[in-house]
């Protein structure tokens, strides 16, 4: 059986990830932010909630790269990596959805009616549709994996689905907001946060390190899972 890749035993990237997260918390809560109506201090959620989505997308990208590597080299380790990077990506996605619901409840939602009533309107936002679709697709990926008993076939088929889904999904997520906006100009009034125009450079020097920090934390968790799985395999077939 094969060893875990060497980068998983290195410490420097784990330490830098934690340092970046500590910096995110301190600078994220103290740093200067633009004063926007309605958003107010919640704009600081950018460093935590939005980072969940960025981390999810980066982890899914790593997962699909590992799937391609698996199909090229037929090495079990790439299959395990693909599975567990997708798993942590989904964890981030779920956390992103939950934190987004909390954030929306106090900013976008109509304060006069219960949040549960306005949720169906909010969930129609193109970005939320994209997020929900990608979560559903990766849940399907896990179901597909579990339904195939043979290990090699499972690895191959799920790698193929992973690549297929990713390549269809990501242009679609990029397209949807543009198409839906062009047909519903009235929705522009949403006080949604536009990362390109709205945030100041003072926020940017916290936001980008935050994305890297959260992603590195996710990679650390994923590598621990991969190493555990490799150990398990070694135990069953020494």
């Amino acid at each position: 059986m094969s060893q875990a890749p060497r980068y998983m035993h290195r410490h420097w990237w784990k330490i830098s990830g934690i340092i970046l997260l500590a910096y995110t918390i301190i600078a994220g809560l103290l740093g200067p932010v633009p004063k926007l109506p309605l958003l107010q201090e919640t704009i600081r959620n950018l460093y935590f909630h939005v980072c969940m989505w960025f981390g999810m997308m980066i982890l899914f990208t790593v997962s699909v790269v590992q799937a391609i590597l698996y199909l090229r080299k037929m090495d079990r380790r790439h299959d395990l990596a693909s599975r567990h990077f997708a798993g942590v990506g989904m964890l981030y996605g779920l956390l992103g959805y939950a934190t987004g619901a909390l954030w929306a409840a106090y900013t976008w939602a109509d304060p006069n009616i219960p949040f549960a009533e306005s949720f169906s309107t909010i969930a129609r936002d193109p970005k939320l549709i994209g997020a929900a679709i990608s979560l559903l697709v990766y849940f399907a990926y896990l179901v597909l994996r579990d339904s195939i008993p043979d290990i090699d076939r499972r690895a191959r088929i799920s790698a193929v689905y992973n690549i297929f889904a990713y390549v269809i999904l990501f242009p679609a997520i990029w397209i949807l907001p543009r198409v839906l906006e062009s047909l519903h100009p009235g929705q522009d009034g949403n006080p949604a946060l536009d990362v390109k125009n709205d945030i100041s450079s003072g926020m940017r020097i916290v936001f980008y390190p935050a994305v890297i920090g959260w992603t590195l934390l996710g990679v650390w968790i994923a590598t621990l899972r991969i190493r555990t799985e490799l150990l398990k395999e070694k135990q069953y077939n020494p």
């Binding site: 060893q3 875990a4 934690i18 997260l21 918390i25 301190i26 809560l29 190493r227 555990t228 150990l231």
Partner: peptide, 28 residues
Amino acid sequence: VVIGVMLTILSGITLYLYRLDKKIGKLE
């Protein structure tokens, strides 16, 4: 106070992951 709370949580998670990492390393 919020910063303190969040840093405490972060350090707790870090400690947990660090110990897990070490344990897996030993088993490897």
